[in-house]
Design a protein around this nucleic acid. Structure first.
Length: 420
DNA sequence: TCTGGGGTCCTAGGACCC
DNA sequence: TCTGGGGTCCTAGGACCC
């Protein structure tokens, strides 16, 4: 049996934990730069705020409905997430953290001895008591079905109390007939549109298509999904692997036109990539820089380029990556455009302590010590106290975060105060 | 005025090999 | 007019996820 445990409206719930007076009040959480709505409490959903809605278009609705608006606070959500995941390991050693707010659990050999309804209720209770976050739990015999079961648990709280066990074929079929094909895990916009065109509306109807059709139009990924929905296990629990790509990209709060401004941004992104690389003890062999103008501004000239370069040797040095990223930026920067977004992506990793034989170039051994020291200092002092000269010109760049909540759970100065 | 960020997997087609 | 067969590796692009 697989369980999918999913935190309800996770970011909104995290904010509510520390402001319990917001219980039953509508809450939304915005993306970086306070751009779009990326999380909504149930009450906010009822007010008709769509997922991904640009904040500026809904300002009036926010006011009218007295919606509590938050900038995203990833320090808080990340910490709350690891608390939730820690508690989940009490129920089974087999856990796959699938995203910041979801995990698969596997229960093997328990089938005849355990009452999964009961386990589900215990999980909910434990997580709520331990973190204040409400979760929904779906049980089924494959991961894809567990995802579907979770949707049932979430959609019918009155009937399920947020726990649904899909343990018979009758329940499976009933759930799949209810589940719209567009809401199936693994079916996105494109496939949903194609399926609806041929008259397939429910997940159940999808499972009735021929293997050949599914394979032809949706590749083996679609075929695996079909089997999974029929109850044949095709997707295993995954062990966390090191990342294969690492990206640091941002939209800017305003348009940038000058090379030096872009250079400062790109250099900083490279430094962050280097830090992420060191955290997983990898070195990158390839680096890409991209930049583009604001695609929504049809009135302005548009420009978008990326530049991919092979690094002279595998590295996770902030100095080297910053230097190479600046070189790449020089190749694609054109004057006369208003840039809105840029990013650095590093790829093609090798292990940190694997010294490739390279006759002419290799990492400057001084960088290694320097990076270690940098990591230690930044860890002790809070992020990014120590920077490269190329990062700070005259100005410090800021994200727009007008509604940021405190980092209650990770900064002692920002912890919640309880009156005696 | 304002519209997020960071990942994974699969396939088709081209280049190249013997 | 006709011009083999069977591989591998790489890349770009498309699809998906949260």
């Amino acid at each position: 049996m697989f369980a999918l445990v999913d935190c309800n409206n996770f970011y909104a719930s995290c904010e509510r934990v520390f402001q319990p007076q917001l219980k039953n009040k509508p809450i939304v959480v915005l993306s970086n730069n306070d751009g779009c709505v990326i999380a909504r409490s149930n009450e906010a959903k009822k007010c008709g705020i769509p997922m991904g809605a640009p904040a500026f278009e809904h300002k009036e609705l926010f006011e009218k409905e007295k919606i509590h608006v938050f900038s995203s606070n990833y320090a808080l959500y990340g910490d709350m997430s690891s608390r939730v995941m820690d508690l989940l390991t009490e129920f089974t050693p087999e856990i796959e953290v699938y995203s910041i707010d979801e995990a698969f659990l596997k229960f093997e050999g328990f089938e005849t001895h355990f009452n999964f309804e009961d386990i589900g209720r215990k999980i909910r209770h434990r997580i709520y008591k331990g973190t204040g976050i409400p979760v929904s739990v779906g049980f089924a015999t494959t991961k894809s079905l567990a995802k579907a079961a979770n949707k049932v648990a979430k959609k019918f709280p009155d009937k399920t109390s947020h726990v649904y066990v899909m343990d018979t074929d009758a329940k499976r079929i009933k759930a799949l007939k209810w589940l719209a094909v567009a809401n199936v895990w693994g079916i996105g916009h494109q496939h949903a549109a194609r399926l609806e065109k041929i008259g397939v509306k429910s997940a159940y109807e999808f499972t009735q298509l021929s293997d050949e059709w599914v394979k032809k139009h949706m590749s083996v990924v679609g075929l695996r999904l079909k089997k999974e929905l029929q109850g044949t296990e095709c997707l295993e629990m995954e062990i966390p692997a090191s990342k294969k790509d690492i990206a640091t990209t941002r939209s800017f709060d305003k348009n940038y036109t000058e090379f030096d401004d872009l250079k400062e941004r790109v250099s900083t992104f490279a430094v962050t990539c280097a830090e992420k690389l060191r955290k997983q003890k990898s070195c990158a062999n390839t680096l890409m820089v991209f930049l583009h103008t604001n695609g929504y501004r049809k009135d302005l000239p548009q420009y978008a380029r990326n530049y991919l370069l092979q690094l002279p040797f595998p590295t996770n040095s902030a100095i080297e990556l910053s230097k190479q990223a600046t070189l790449a930026l020089k190749k694609i920067f054109r004057k006369g455009y208003a840039y809105k977004k840029a990013g650095v992506i590093v790829m093609d990793f090798s292990p940190e302590n694997y010294d490739q034989i390279n006759l002419f170039n290799n990492i400057n051994p001084k960088h290694r010590k320097l990076m270690e020291t940098l990591d230690q200092l930044n860890e002790g002092m809070g992020t990014h106290k120590i920077k490269l000269a190329s990062q700070d010109l005259e100005r410090t760049w800021k994200m727009r975060q007008e509604k940021l909540s405190p980092r209650y759970s990770t900064r002692i100065q920002e912890a919640i105060k309880v009156k005696a």
